[in-house]
Design a protein around this nucleic acid. Structure first.
Length: 279
DNA sequence: CCTGCTACCTGATGGC
DNA sequence: TGCCATCAGGTAGCAG
């Protein structure tokens, strides 16, 4: 569950399910998911603690406990699943027909929350405090927070000589934007992804700021209807393709000018853009 | 400090 | 059908 809107939708859906509930115990069935932390220590840390709240920063989901936090990062394919019991999880997880890979599970008095990731890229970690998490601590301003202002964004852009696309993916500057929504935002703002971040005019950066915020809100709305259904092992976000204007549309006509959309590689990732209307 | 590259994994898809 | 290559919404770690 890739970018900020998807994680936000998961946070909102998860909060009422687990807030105020006590973690009975933790199962780590695939220790790679807690790497480089020790799975037994993570389990010991979280067991018997109550989840006070569920938060998000960038693409991280944060479970605030009585003491300390658990962080979840879904990377490319991670997802949450809900099982009625540990027995039900045993039956459904890590086997046919759905073959979901539950790497870490939090067991409650009623119900089990599974962190599943077939590629095992996703991570679950524990920390005594937010400051102790290097990943959280090094994040830049969250793209849907009120601190993400046009002025702030403009000054961040001015500090970087990197190609705009790579700048937008740098979570230490602005947190939450990923490959899809960076492409979409640059398309809406009509800015060429290859330009250096510090080459944008004030007007460019204001347009881009506006595009980012509106693209992320629109995606969030889409992610919330229908809301994720963690009980369905095949759940995933529906209808996101419909709101995309440029991502994944190589060789198809630009929705604005008809020019064929191009795909190029930047920083090892695909960028989709319109050569005619993005300057 | 900054930047660019690779590794980390599994699965879906398309060409031959 | 099978095999191979390529692609995937992300980041950590390392070399220069």
């Amino acid at each position: 569950m890739p970018e900020l809107p998807e994680v936000e939708a998961v946070v909102r859906t998860l909060r009422p399910l687990v807030r105020g509930r006590k973690i009975r115990c933790v199962h780590v069935s695939h220790p790679i998911a807690t790497k480089p932390q020790n799975p037994a220590e993570l389990a010991r840390f979280a067991a018997k603690q109550t989840i006070r709240d569920v938060k998000r920063h960038g693409k991280y989901l944060v479970l605030e406990l009585d003491r300390g936090i658990l962080t979840m990062h879904f990377r490319l394919d991670g997802q949450l699943l809900w099982f009625a019991s540990a027995a039900e999880m045993e039956r459904k997880a890590n086997r046919a027909p759905h073959n979901v890979h539950v790497d870490v599970a939090l067991e409650f008095n009623r119900g089990v929350l599974g962190f599943a990731d077939r590629r095992h890229f996703g991570r679950v970690h524990y920390f005594e405090s937010r400051e102790a998490s290097k990943g959280l601590h090094s994040l830049g301003v969250d793209a849907l927070s009120k601190e993400f202002t046009p002025k702030h964004f403009t000054s961040l852009l001015a500090d970087s000589r990197r190609p705009l696309k790579e700048f937008l993916l740098d979570q230490t500057r602005v947190a939450g934007i990923g490959n899809i929504y960076s492409c979409e935002s640059m398309w809406y703002a009509r800015i060429d992804p290859r330009r250096r971040a510090n080459s944008l005019s004030k007007k460019d950066s204001e347009n881009l700021h506006k595009a980012i915020v509106s693209v992320l809100w629109r995606a969030l709305e889409c992610c919330l209807k229908p809301a994720p259904d963690f009980r369905d092992p095949t759940w995933w976000f529906q209808g996101l393709e419909k709101i995309l204007r440029v991502y994944g549309r190589e060789d198809q006509p630009c929705h604005r000018c008809g020019e064929l959309i191009r795909r190029i590689e930047q920083g090892g990732r695909s960028t989709y853009f319109c050569k005619r209307c993005q300057k």
